[in-house]
Deep mutational scan, measured.
Amino acid sequence: MPSETPQAEVGPTGCPHRSGPHSAKGSLEKGSPEDKEAKEPLWIRPDAPSRCTWQLGRPASESPHHHTAPAKSPKILPDILKKIGDTPMVRINKIGKKFGLKCELLAKCEFFNAGGSVKDRISLRMIEDAERDGTLKPGDTIIEPTSGNTGIGLALAAAVRGYRCIIVMPEKMSSEKVDVLRALGAEIVRTPTNARFDSPESHVGVAWRLKNEIPNSHILDQYRNASNPLAHYDTTADEILQQCDGKLDMLVASVGTGGTITGIARKLKEKCPGCRIIGVDPEGSILAEPEELNQTEQTTYEVEGIGYDFIPTVLDRTVVDKWFKSNDEEAFTFARMLIAQEGLLCGGSAGSTVAVAVKAAQELQEGQRCVVILPDSVRNYMTKFLSDRWMLQKGFLKEEDLTEKKPWWWHLRVQELGLSAPLTVLPTITCGHTIEILREKGFDQAPVVDEAGVILGMVTLGNMLSSLLAGKVQPSDQVGKVIYKQFKQIRLTDTLGRLSHILEMDHFALVV
């Protein structure tokens, strides 16, 4: 994948999101292997301009796509893939009243899908469409860049269908997702969380590099694949309309690839034109409109599966009536509230959605109805927002919020430890010299600072030695090549209790 991002070429006709291997024109390309080798690009942008032909009021008969309808489940399912879809609609009884809503608040519980998330729908649909058009064949390999849930859905379907599955996901995604993927037989590649989507090191860039190296491999490409919004247009939206008897006044959905909100909203605009569509985008993402909503100094966020630093091709923002931004604290607070007060075992993005819903639905009156999409299960986040310690460490809970008995030293300040200034190293000294210094002084790690004293990161003896043994660096290389740029900081005025929580999850903390 090139470091400079080429513009994806656009073909003359058809839909841009065809499933299957992508040609340089962004659509299915038939021909000899030699032709494909000559024409197939190194990668295709996940934010390529959409060429979708959908228009409100256009006859369904003019759609270029294969459409399906929700099917009634048999008493005995032939395999677990038949437990994807037909998820329950559940009334939220307490939270709406707590925040003064007059309307009825309903939750579409997508964590009841077989793999635990709304992404099971698009995973199965992308595979079925690729099999139907002859792209996927027995023994082929599926590769997908994902925040985890699409990966789980694909790995689940691949396990049943017999495909090899490789999932490329950023490091910030939970260990629970990784464990589930491994249990399903998927191979996992992790990428830096802070890598831009168009960087060769991003999950998108690495996935395309693997595709170019592995024979008979395919990126189904949830960011561009029409099967993504079509899955929701054909099934999720129809289920909502049936469950609500066609009567709903507002739908609120958090947005990642945009397939969920695009597919549902398009069908609702056709069948229930008075329904307002509300999009939820986390602070630090750029999906919301108008652009002024996205202006923030924050560039990272903890909530998973929603928000991006690019506009995915499948996201149709014209069908969203209003956007709201959400933050991590309210997302996790509301997710825990949904679990504790409503018994809905949902993930953090569901918290984002409901946090926005109780604001947006203030305009609705008694007798009206708001539906929220709860995308995934708490299963993926047992060591994250479900953990009091994690919430404390991230600053989303305060010590006084917890009532468990603490040891005698818990409320003492870090400054009472009488710490001395640490050994520091410059980023320009060599790895070999740094190892000598650390061994001589008896230290395992040291902060790396520039000549102005600005902290650049941390270097550890173990990481340097393993990097040297693996051949990633040489003793003569500058130590700046092996620094940890993500590390926890703590102030002298913070409590030892807070430091204790940090050290339970990290090997060190830097006192500043």
Rank of each mutant, 00 (worst) to 15 (best):
E4M: 03
P6W: 04
Q7I: 13
A8M: 10
E9K: 13
E9T: 09
V10R: 09
G11W: 07
G11D: 04
G11V: 08
P12N: 10
G14P: 11
G14Q: 10
G14I: 11
H17G: 12
R18M: 07
R18I: 11
R18P: 06
S19R: 04
G20E: 14
P21R: 06
L28S: 10
E29K: 15
E29C: 11
K30I: 05
K30P: 09
G31C: 12
S32G: 06
E34N: 02
K36F: 15
A38V: 14
E40S: 10
L42G: 14
W43V: 14
W43D: 02
P49C: 12
S50L: 07
S50M: 05
R51A: 08
R51I: 07
C52Q: 02
C52V: 04
T53I: 06
W54R: 06
L56K: 11
L56T: 11
L56Q: 10
R58G: 06
R58L: 09
S61K: 08
S61Q: 13
E62V: 07
E62D: 15
H66A: 07
H67V: 11
H67E: 10
T68V: 12
A69D: 10
A69H: 06
P70R: 10
P74E: 11
I76K: 11
L77V: 14
L77D: 07
L77P: 03
L77T: 03
D79V: 13
I80A: 06
I80Y: 03
I84L: 14
G85A: 09
P88G: 02
I92M: 12
I92K: 05
N93G: 06
K97Q: 12
G100P: 01
L101A: 03
L106T: 09
K108R: 01
K108M: 01
C109D: 02
F111T: 05
F111M: 05
N113W: 05
G116A: 09
G116H: 07
S117T: 06
K119E: 05
D120V: 01
D120A: 13
I122A: 04
I122W: 00
S123N: 09
M126H: 06
E128L: 11
D129V: 10
A130L: 05
E131V: 10
R132V: 01
T135M: 13
L136K: 00
P138M: 04
D140N: 03
I142F: 06
I143W: 03
I143T: 04
E144N: 05
G148H: 00
N149T: 01
I152A: 03
I152Q: 00
G153M: 00
G153S: 04
A157Q: 06
A158N: 02
A159P: 04
Y163N: 00
V178Y: 06
L181R: 01
L181E: 01
L181V: 07
R182I: 09
L184E: 02
L184I: 14
L184D: 00
I188D: 04
V189N: 07
T191M: 01
T193F: 07
N194Q: 10
A195C: 13
A195M: 05
R196L: 13
R196H: 02
F197P: 09
S199N: 08
H203P: 06
V204Y: 10
V204P: 07
V204H: 09
V206W: 01
R209H: 13
L210A: 03
K211F: 08
P215R: 02
N216W: 03
N216G: 04
N216H: 11
S217F: 06
H218K: 06
I219V: 08
I219S: 05
L220M: 06
D221W: 02
R224N: 09
A226I: 15
A226V: 10
N228T: 03
P229S: 06
A231M: 08
A231R: 02
A231T: 12
Y233K: 01
Y233L: 03
D234Q: 06
A237Y: 05
A237W: 01
D238S: 13
E239D: 10
Q242N: 15
Q243N: 06
D245A: 02
D245R: 02
D249E: 06
L251R: 01
V252T: 10
A253D: 09
A253H: 08
S254E: 02
V255T: 11
G256H: 00
T257A: 08
G259V: 01
T260L: 04
T260H: 14
I261Q: 01
T262H: 11
G263L: 00
G263H: 01
G263K: 00
G263M: 00
A265I: 07
K267L: 15
K267N: 08
L268F: 07
K269Y: 03
K269E: 04
P273E: 07
P273K: 15
R276Q: 04
